[in-house]
Amino acid sequence: MGLAKRIIPCLDVDAGRVVKGVKFVDIRDAGDPVEVARRYNEEGADEITFLDITASSDDRETIVHVVEDVASEVFIPLTVGGGIRVVDDIRRMLNAGADKVAINTAAVFNPEFVREAAESFGSQCIVVAIDAKRVSADDEPLRWEIFTHGGRKPTGIDVIEWAKKMADFGAGEILLTSMDRDGTKIGFDNDLTLAISTAVPIPVIASGGVGDLQHLVEGVTKGGADAVLAASIFHFAEYSIGEAKQYMADAGIEMRL
């Protein structure tokens, strides 16, 4: 027996509140990140990721309090992404109780930031988030490019080359989101996940497109992912994390049950 594959529920947080609705019948306040995190922990989540989508800079500090509150009660690894731009942002999140931060756009605009972050805090807490979009035509070899601004702006950067570079710069993990699949519920882009997973020596988290439990299985069996991240299928209580883990285990995947 070796390492279990991880299931990571992702919560979007806006000004300190969980958004995109979380539907648990027996939860008092579905917008409270602490209640939701506690619930996911009880269900057996292997980690929790918070994505801070707060637009107003006035409210940016609230995510720090969210992390503090959650970290005081939930004792599994916590990752925070969104708005991580300078070393001081990382320090604040780690001091608040986060275990890892996810760097996305800032890495694209300033790759040296990833190197600096890894040297300052250790690779184990630096996740590089990559938003990838397929740019090859149907009759061409598969190729993906990095996109920024929620998938709207192409950068011309090849995803595989980028992932390798980020690993070289000291990233400890890659959070890989398919912008083509995000929100579609038709499954991960497993070709993309496999391409990255075979290209880098660090763990890869597959994200974007999960609609059912078989998609989680395929992220691992077809995509070679080390962890799978999903939001809506857990938020809307379509499946509990416990059900998802059991389903994956029944499919022959090593899980923490």
């Binding site: 027996m1 070796g2 390492l3 279990a4 594959k5 991880r6 292997d46 690779s123 184990q124 400890g172 993990e173 997973s197 075979t198 020596p201 660090i202 763990p203 691992v220 069996t221 070679g224 080390d226 962890a227 090593e254 923490r256």
Partner: peptide
């Protein structure tokens, strides 16, 4: 050592990150 492969035939990732028995 980095010489080992996981269940999926890919080399084991380093760091060892996650839940082990």
């Amino acid at each position: 050592s980095g010489d080992f492969k996981g269940d999926n035939g890919l080399p084991l990732k380093i760091p060892h990150m996650g839940w082990s028995q």
